[in-house]
């Protein structure tokens, strides 16, 4: 298996990186271009850019900003938020994204995953699942989809998704640790890579998540001090988990 990955996530609203707690109370934490470049330089294994208002406010993703971030990266780049069609996805890939992440639109129209995988290949299609109490939520956590998280993860894989970005709404932004239980259940139910998301507060939390998932998403823990990524990587290595040497 490839090495476990640490993936900083830029939640972007109105052109700025923001971060909330349990998807609410968003505050400004920085410029996406500068933060993205800082993470790429600090040894991030990948970068995720989520336009978190695209679904809520019903507007298309910020392609121009996506491009400016891409220009500064030397690592893989996933972009999501408001992807509803093949055209949306292609625009993001032309803008420099390597993968697109789909959430609400795939729940509404699961065949979208198959169409995207046919066009881009499964390795470029990430299904983002926001979960709470074992169920799926869409529209930035605002709407219950009345679907079981495990069942949806399996269906998304069958329909062509190549990776699962699993965010626990209750853990998001708390820094109290990932929801290891649901992450483990999803990872055992599918054969595609799973990215754990929501709740990272320290190296132990990340190490726990990497014990069940192939990658861990990081946000609140990093944004105030992007250099924290370097020390975090060292601490996680000291916990006995092998990470790539980014030198």
């Amino acid at each position: 298996m490839p090495l476990p990955r640490l993936i900083p996530c830029l939640d972007v609203a109105a052109g700025r990186v923001v971060k909330g707690v349990k998807f609410e109370g968003l505050r400004d934490v920085g410029d996406p271009v500068e933060l993205g470049a800082a993470y790429s330089d600090a040894g991030a294994d990948e970068l995720v850019f989520l336009d978190i208002k695209a679904t809520v406010e019903n507007r298309a993703s910020l392609v121009e900003l996506v491009e400016r971030v891409a220009e500064r990266l030397a690592i893989p780049y996933t972009v999501g938020g408001g992807v509803r069609s093949e055209e949306d996805a292609e625009r993001l890939l032309l803008g420099g994204a390597d993968k697109v992440s789909v959430n609400s639109a795939a729940v509404a129209d699961p065949a979208l995953l198959t169409r995207l995988a046919g066009l881009l290949g499964s390795q470029a299609v990430v299904i983002a699942i926001d979960t709470k109490a074992g169920g799926v939520y869409t529209h930035a956590g605002g709407r219950a989809a009345h679907r079981d998280t495990i069942e949806w993860a399996i269906e998304a894989q069958e329909r062509g998704a190549g990776e699962i970005l699993l965010t626990s709404i209750d853990a998001d932004g708390t820094r109290d640790g990932y929801d290891v239980e649901i992450t483990k259940r999803v990872a055992e139910a599918v054969s595609i890579p799973v990215i754990a998301s929501g709740g990272a507060g320290n190296n132990r939390h990340v190490a726990e998540a990497l014990g069940v998932a192939q990658a861990a998403l990081l946000a609140s823990i990093l944004h105030e001090n992007p250099d924290r990524l370097r020390t975090l990587r060292d601490e996680i290595r000291a916990d006995g988990i092998e990470l790539r040497d980014a030198a």
Partner: peptide
């Protein structure tokens, strides 16, 4: 393993890791 195979892995001979997808 998990497919798609996504992530950084060492290439031999040598010891550097590169990104695969």
């Amino acid at each position: 393993g998990r497919v798609p195979r996504i992530g950084w892995a060492r290439v031999e001979p040598g010891d550097e890791a590169f990104y695969f997808a």
